[in-house]
């Protein structure tokens, strides 16, 4: 099995393997090989389109957790200029599971807060696999309050397996840190645009997810408890995670219907990791438009809309935000 492809993508992997082989022998200027390659490419695309038009909720979870999936820092590098990372919660430490800083999005200054899982083994350990501790959320809150003082729009990038469930996390008040973010983000007097780029797991995701507009990348997921956790509670085994994923409706399609997610941002065929530059540029384009739109609204109107939206969650008549 090709590890760069997920289990349901193995037929694509086979075709891509053949294409690669042909390319290696293709240096002999044989025209038939070029034709054959282009034929296989088309076939591979059609196959990928077919597979990706019919993903189960569990398949989407796998794409969202793909080891090559772009993380916050990948987007930060590509979408922003003039990036200054800012560190620390001013009380305890600096949590590397959350990266934060000021940068420019299409020239306009913004505050960026992103959860970061880390790519290499060392980096994953350093970033605690993207599981923030209280100091991470407090750093985020400190900087979001700063953004409010300077009228700077806030962009958050959500990608976490959850807030860190450990002794130190509890000792330093992880619940309070999350709760505080939810409360304060509901009233910060500057636009807040949140985007789930990978895995949005529970309170650890929501803690940087309250705002005026919620985007989800097409193959990202957002859940109240991981499908494994849900399966463990109900069926007493993680093997039923696919069923749990289906039951909870963890994809943007379902969450848009529920009036929770405002916008799904399409991904390149086969997922964001197949063309990170393209993904970053289309996300940048949408975020730029959204920042402009929300910056134009009078601030009191923006805040009232944000509040009404929060109050509408779960209401059978819930509506999407205006952009």
């Amino acid at each position: 099995m090709n590890p760069n492809y997920l289990d349901f993508e193995q037929s694509i992997a086979e075709l891509e393997g053949k294409i690669e082989e042909l390319q290696l022998v293709g240096n002999d200027n044989d025209l038939n090989i070029t034709e054959e390659i282009s034929r296989l490419r088309k076939k591979s695309t059609r196959l990928a389109e077919k597979i990706y038009s019919n993903l189960s909720a569990w398949d989407v979870v796998k794409v969202a957790r793909h080891p090559q999936r772009p993380y916050s820092t990948d987007y930060i590098q590509r979408m922003f200029t003039d990036w200054d990372e800012l560190h620390g919660d001013r009380h305890f430490g600096d949590d590397h599971a959350i990266v934060a800083g000021v940068a420019r999005l299409s020239d306009k200054p913004v505050m960026v807060i992103g959860e970061e899982k880390g790519r290499s083994v060392n980096e994953k350990v350093m970033r605690n696999f993207g599981m923030p501790k209280p100091e991470g959320y407090r750093k985020a809150l400190r900087l979001m309050k700063m953004a409010e003082r300077f009228n700077m729009p806030i962009l958050t990038l959500i990608d976490t397996p959850g807030a860190y469930p450990g002794i130190d996390s509890e000792e330093r008040g992880i619940s309070e840190a999350i709760a505080q973010n939810l409360a304060v983000m509901s009233r910060l007097r500057t636009p807040i645009i949140c985007t789930v780029i990978g895995e949005g797991s529970s309170g650890g995701a929501l803690a940087i997810g309250v705002g005026d507009h919620l985007n989800m990348l097409q193959y990202s997921t957002y859940f109240v408890i991981s499908p494994e956790g849900c399966a463990n509670i109900i069926w007493k085994t993680v093997d039923k995670a696919p069923l749990a994923a289906e039951a909870m409706g963890v994809t943007s399609t379902v969450l848009e219907e529920l009036g929770i997610v405002d916008e799904t941002i399409p991904e390149p065929l086969g997922g964001a990791h197949r063309d990170i530059d393209l993904m970053a540029s289309s996300l940048q384009e949408r975020l730029t438009a959204q920042v402009d739109e929300f910056k134009r609204l009078p601030i009191d109107e923006l805040l009232e809309k944000r509040y009404q939206r929060l109050m509408s969650y779960g209401n059978p008549l819930a509506r999407k935000s205006p952009v």
């Binding site: 409360a183 509901s186 929501l206 963890v250 529920l258 929770i260 109050m311 969650y313």
Partner: peptide
């Protein structure tokens, strides 16, 4: 769990009104 993300969003709702 059975109300999935709707229940998660009640955290945001209740926190906002407390604020």
């Amino acid at each position: 769990m059975q109300e999935a993300l709707i229940s998660l969003m009640q955290m945001a709702k209740t926190s906002a009104v407390i604020e």
